[in-house]
């Protein structure tokens, strides 16, 4: 036995020193982080997103002008040193409007993404984990719902509301877009469900809730996280689209969709009215979708 013990510690030491670097690579999370950290695109995304979040939280930091202050004598001015993005018909500063417009986009995208993820986590994991009739009911409802065209559904639903604000717009988007996340979560849970550590946890007396919450979800979350980043960008675009065609937010709200909608009549004479808010909107959508793509690549070793 003494021999064995010496062997044990010697063997142990050898493994520790030699293979520690190799062994550490096994962790998906740290591996993904190392992969992301050295990609410039990732840092560009993060910077854009950080600026957007700062705009949404503290617009005063970016402009001292009041977005609603009218100055009719200085209406429709081209970009200048005083008005970086020019002014609109009523002389309001377009730059200030764009800055203040970030808040509703971010809030709606956050609310919609969060609620869809919660629905997906609860029902997707129930369907994936329990299978059988629970899965049949949840999956069939999801399939049927999935077949409804989302934008059309949202338009029809929004037309039934008398007042349209952040809450109703978010609701209309949630109702027609939770399905993809649920399907993703369900299939991720299905993939993890048969892992040995699930059996092992059950063999040591874990409850179903504990198995789902502590053992399945943390291991099945990656595809959902990736999709959430992409979805965040998609919701920003969807909010602007619905607002632009007139079923989304209404004045006096300040939103990118509304600014772009206002610019419609003067696109030929004053293109900057569309150009700047349009560019910011596209950049925001682009940053989130790109972040999702980068996350997916980083988490999927086969893509490398």
């Amino acid at each position: 036995m003494t021999d064995l013990e010496t062997l044990d510690s010697a063997d142990q030491g050898a493994i520790e020193d030699e293979d520690l670097a190799a062994i550490r690579e096994g962790s998906l999370g740290s591996d993904a982080w190392r992969e992301l950290r050295r990609r410039p695109l990732f840092w560009i995304c993060i910077t854009i997103i950080a600026v957007l979040l700062a705009m949404a939280a503290f617009p005063q930091l970016f402009t001292s002008l009041d977005p609603e202050a009218q100055d009719q004598r200085n209406g429709l001015m081209f970009p200048s040193r005083e008005h970086w993005f020019g002014t609109d018909l009523f002389g309001r500063d377009v730059y200030a409007n764009v800055i203040y417009g970030a808040r509703v986009s971010i809030v709606i995208a956050f609310v919609v993404t969060t609620f869809c993820a919660i629905i997906a986590l609860i029902f997707g994991s129930l369907a994936g984990y329990y299978g059988g009739w629970i899965d049949s009911i949840i999956s069939r409802i999801t399939d049927v719902w999935f077949a409804i065209p989302g934008v059309l559904g949202s338009i029809v639903m929004l037309q039934m509301f008398e007042t349209r604000n952040i809450a109703t717009l978010s609701l209309a988007l949630i109702v027609f877009s939770w399905t993809t996340m649920l399907r993703l979560t369900r299939s991720a849970v299905l993939a993890v469900k048969h892992a040995d550590y699930i059996d092992s946890a059950r063999a040591l007396g874990a409850t179903d809730f504990r198995i789902i919450w502590r053992h399945i979800l943390p291991n099945a979350l990656t595809p959902l996280l990736v999709y959430m980043a992409i979805f965040f960008g998609v919701v920003i675009a969807a909010e602007a689209t619905l607002t632009f065609i007139g079923v989304g937010l209404q004045k006096p709200s300040i939103s990118w969709g509304l600014i772009i909608s206002d610019s419609r009549a003067r696109i030929q004479t004053h293109p900057y009215l569309l150009l700047f808010p349009g560019a910011i909107l596209s950049m925001a959508v682009f940053a989130f979708i790109l972040l999702g793509d980068l996350l997916r690549d980083a988490f999927d070793p086969r893509q490398r």
């Binding site: 962790s27 040995d196 063999a203």
Partner: peptide
Amino acid sequence: IAMVFQDALSALNPVF
């Protein structure tokens, strides 16, 4: 009654 599995790497939760 407790049980020990064959392959401890796959029988332990990788994220904790």
